[in-house]
Design a protein around this nucleic acid. Structure first.
Lengths: 261, 261
DNA sequence: AAACTATGGTTCAAATATTGAACCTTAAGC
DNA sequence: GCTTAAGGTTCAATATTTGAACCATAGTTT
């Protein structure tokens, strides 16, 4: 792996820790030599990507990403555009609605709207969504080129619950259904007792950039309700896509996209 | 320079461009070989720090910084804490108030509040503040250890206007005045017709982490008004510091800090 | 208080990744 | 259909990265 990759992986690891971490800790978590980790941290600090607390000597994410994020959001205001739709969907569905974005080969949760209910699904911003075990992952993959689907299904597929589907053939069938329907459904794939449905937000070229998903307790849903949620998620995803990219629409139909890619 | 440093410098350059840029452009702007720039971009893209538009093949800042920024702000909510004070100051002073943060060896503007007046100073979020030519830069340096002051004044000091002070000896005197007074004043150092005053937000250890600054048209200010603004900026900076770090106060007096560092 | 341990931080020869001139490919312009 | 320019790739030469061993400091145990 390149040096840059290792340094960025360190940054990612640091960001996923619950709190500030010391040098030895960081080196261990990243499987790097202490000297290497230190040089990376010093270099990242020079550019403001990490900060070292002068008292505790522990490291934390710096402020450079905040500046970059502002620029990114100013030019490419995905959150700003999407959040109103997510809020509306949370209100109408009275279930947890979350938005994910594809970046760095992973699908990450970037926003969550909780419904005002005592019993609801809790999802954290920043959490990663496995492609094979979440509605978002499936919805994302279903509209990707075949090569990327195969690549994703070739990796080891972790079994999170008794219901997690890990058979690539079966997953392919589910992807076909998702593509045909326009939204995915995953029954307890990541967490027991939770059923989810999701639809992709796509760029004008048809490529998915993220997903809108609704997660509900299995105990208070039925097939009809889930299909209704899926339809609503797909509508929200399309609305976000349209607002985000202007009135350009994804080229071609879903079926055509899957064939030509 | 390390590979990581070069890659992060590329990211910084990309963020400062007005719009998305092509490979050749980026390579030229960063003084890198095309092959090198490409490898960096590919590596940065893998981790979500840049994105390549699939149609135009141009590159832009990716979404990874947005995720990192969320984490940073959740753990270290500088903007969230500071903005109310900046807003209040803009309202009471009826001039442009801006907040800067030190990161990666530079002082960058991270927030600006414009007053509701037709004639006002315009400052962009993201703009860099030279240490010797801005009130923020001076206020920051004045509370830094002597070694850092010397390092900053040793660099070539650009003359932005006829009024920019570039004599290190004179600047040192101004820094002493700033430290004694608690806020800096710069008369047309960066832009003709603009006078500014600033005070540092400091961590409990006394180290500046950023500045609160007020910028006003020279034509409608006088010495008394500027001193009043300076006092207000210092009060806001201290209030931010206190709220941000809890009730811990910067250790020692200003004079002591300057001597012992 | 001496010995121990854990952490942050540093060094330098050996190992490895990076570099860039030259090359290929594609697409637009004429 | 030729020319130009941009994106992208290759591989030997080269500069950077690596990590075992080291030092320094602070807290803890005996």
């Amino acid at each position: 792996m390149s040096t840059i990759g290792k340094a960025l992986a360190l940054l990612d690891t640091l960001s996923r820790l619950d709190k500030e971490a010391g040098l030895t800790d960081i080196a261990r978590q990243c499987a790097l030599d202490k000297a290497t980790a230190r040089r990376f941290l010093v270099e990242l600090e020079k550019h403001g990507f990490v900060e070292q607390d002068p008292d505790t000597r522990r490291y934390r994410i710096g402020s450079a990403p905040v500046r970059l994020a502002r620029i990114r959001e100013a030019r490419f205001p995905f959150l700003r555009v999407a959040i109103p739709f997510i809020e509306a969907l949370a209100e109408s569905s009275t279930e947890t609605v979350h938005l994910s974005e594809f970046a760095g080969g992973q699908l990450s949760t970037i926003h969550v709207e909780d419904p005002p209910r005592a019993h609801r699904i809790i999802i954290d911003v920043g959490s990663l969504l496995p492609f094979h075990a979440t509605a978002s992952g499936l919805a994302f993959l279903a509209f990707c080129p075949r090569a990327e689907i195969d690549a994703a299904l070739k990796k080891p597929l972790e079994k999170f619950t008794d219901y997690t589907v890990t058979d690539p053939r079966l997953l392919l069938t589910m992807l076909d259904e998702t593509a045909a329907r326009g939204f995915s459904i995953i029954d307890q794939g990541l967490e027991a007792g939770v059923i989810s449905t999701a639809a992709p937000v796509r760029s004008p070229s048809g490529r998915p950039i993220g997903c809108v998903a609704i997660a509900a307790p299995l105990s208070r849903t039925n097939t009809a309700a889930i299909h209704e949620f899926g339809t609503q998620a797909a509508a929200a995803a399309n609305a976000i896509s349209e607002k985000y990219y202007g009135s350009e629409r994804p080229t071609g139909t879903i079926a055509k996209l899957r064939r030509t890619d």
